[in-house]
Amino acid sequence: MAQTITVTAQARSALGSRANKRLRDTGFIPGVIYGHKQAVVPVTLPRKELSTHLNRGAHLFSLAVGQMSETVLVKEVQYDHLGLEVLHVDFARVDLNERVTVTVPLELKGTPKGEAEGGVLQQIMSEMEVECLVTDIPDIIRHNVSDLGLNSVLHVKELTLPPNVKPTADEDQIVATVREIVEEAATPAEGETAEPEVIGRKPEEGEAGEAEKK
């Protein structure tokens, strides 16, 4: 279950992209707290500490901003183009008795029976949106797939979820399959020289033109 992680934040007065760039250069991350019809509070957070918690999949934080302390849920994390550094974090205020919708990683354990018959386990859904109490957010949903045979399918309804956790996805949505991999045929060499069809161009024109030349 999700634990509340306490992080010290500072209220941020300098706004805008240039101020935020300067902030990031000094080892901090800009963030914002909103929700519950209260004022939007721009904050500054320590990058190293926050990145560590986010990489471990933390959802719930207790942010100490000045003398105030707010329980918040991570709403959005922005990363740079390589996905290495956190650029900005959005936090939404939450009550501990509130039901929220969060995305939780889905991990499949075990080797399916179908792999012995030549199949390959394909996990179609690697994370799942669930609805639960703030205090009941699971860190990860694990499911044992050792019973899956060849050409069998695992649906959302077959997952064993912790109590008080409901999936928001359709019950019949596919989570994983065990299928034989059909290798794609290599593209023919003559296909490389052939030209694609041009949309809106009549093929007769070219042919007619050639005929005239002859």
Binding site: H81, L82, T187, P196, E197, V198, I199, G200
Partner: peptide
């Protein structure tokens, strides 16, 4: 690999600015 249908046969070279978004 190439498209099956295209709007124009030839294209200009273009520029590759910035990062992947």
């Amino acid at each position: 690999m190439m498209p099956k249908r295209v709007l124009y046969r030839k294209s200009q070279r273009g520029k590759m600015k910035g990062n992947a978004t």
